[in-house]
């Protein structure tokens, strides 16, 4: 594995010391050991700070927040039914606007990929279309992990889940593109293996008005089938193979993020098989599917290249 000295620091993105030292999640949560979502949430909340109200639908995140009576986060959270995240956030924002607190307090919806790409897409699309002043973050572990690993609209091609025992036959839904089509003020992708990049994106999003969407790839040891210690490594492979490029779109302007920049050059990308073979969920993937992945990655980067050249 790559043992480069603090890779991100090396890239001069942000010094570790520049990150808020305060933690907003108390230790001792119910999350699995090595859960990327825990790490993602940790850095997102650090960037958001104390003047934040969260709303969370049914998901692993509900479990992270804790059972009746006692919670783990130092920020207020409104739990809401699965399909309602975007609407729930809209309600909180409306109430804050009514009280004149909307400029002071940031409303953040945090949902899983099922809650975002499937059951919650309508409420999210509505909230985005209304230009609701909030941040919507999707932590994408690519299946319904909290209910025992069933396929979602965000499960990638060929992945084994409890409901796709033969591997999923359709590719992953491109949610950031769908949100971008709403013409919202900020769209970004992130990856749990790049907490500094993620931190910067949440900090940036916090200071922008309107609807802001951040889609974060979140490696899941039991759901993806790898040893918990490899969480960061697996997430890096998603980046290094060019499968999950990190970018942001501020008011229509597209920019690649530091960890993904060099992969504009196809020669720098690792082969997708390195990513797939590291996870048990792809153990039965067909040669044809792997080829489909290669084509998908090629097309995805060609599109990014065109986009960068034309703007």
């Amino acid at each position: 594995m790559n043992r480069n000295f603090s890779r991100e620091v090396e890239n001069n993105m942000v010094n570790v010391l520049e990150i808020v030292e305060d933690e907003y999640i108390h230790p001792g949560t119910r999350m699995c050991a090595g859960c990327a979502m825990s790490l993602i949430y940790r850095f997102a909340l650090k960037a958001l700070g104390p003047k934040t109200i969260l709303t969370v639908p049914a998901s692993c995140l509900t479990v992270l927040h804790g059972m009746q009576g006692f919670c783990t986060t130092k920020l207020s959270v409104l739990h809401t039914p699965f399909a309602t995240t975007g609407a729930s956030a809209s309600g909180i924002v409306a109430s804050l606007e009514e009280k004149g607190l909307a400029d002071e307090i940031c409303v953040v919806a945090f949902a899983g990929d099922g809650g975002t790409t499937d059951i919650g897409i309508q409420a999210l699309s509505g909230a985005a279309e209304r230009g609701t002043n909030f941040i919507y973050a999707c932590y994408d572990n690519e299946a319904y992990m909290n209910t025992g690993v069933q396929r979602s609209g965000s499960t990638p091609l060929g992945a084994f889940t409890a409901t796709t025992p033969g591997g999923k036959t359709r590719p992953k839904k491109n949610m950031p593109k769908i949100l971008e089509a709403h013409g919202i003020s900020y769209v970004a992708t992130a990856n749990g293996s790049y907490p500094l990049d993620l931190y910067e994106k949440f900090k940036k999003a916090r200071d922008i008005k309107g609807t802001r969407y951040i889609h974060i790839l979140s490696a899941c040891p039991p759901g993806w089938g790898y040893d918990p210690k490899d969480t960061i490594r697996i997430g890096r492979l998603a980046n290094d193979t060019g499968f999950w490029p990190l970018y942001e779109i501020s008011n229509g302007k597209f920019a690649l993020s530091q960890p993904s920049k060099k992969f504009l050059d196809p020669a720098k990308r690792k082969d997708i098989e390195q990513y797939l073979s590291a996870q048990k969920r792809f153990s039965n993937i067909s040669k044809q599917d792997i080829e489909t992945y290669r084509n998908y990655i090629r097309d995805q980067w060609n599109e990014i290249k065109r986009r960068l050249e034309n703007q």
Binding site: H26, P27, G28, T29, A33, G66, Q68, F70
Partner: peptide
């Protein structure tokens, strides 16, 4: 309503997990 307040170790001493 079912409400929560923040505590350390909501899931107990998770150090015992491993």
């Amino acid at each position: 309503a079912s409400v929560q307040k923040p505590v350390i170790g909501e899931a107990g001493k998770t150090g015992t997990w491993s």
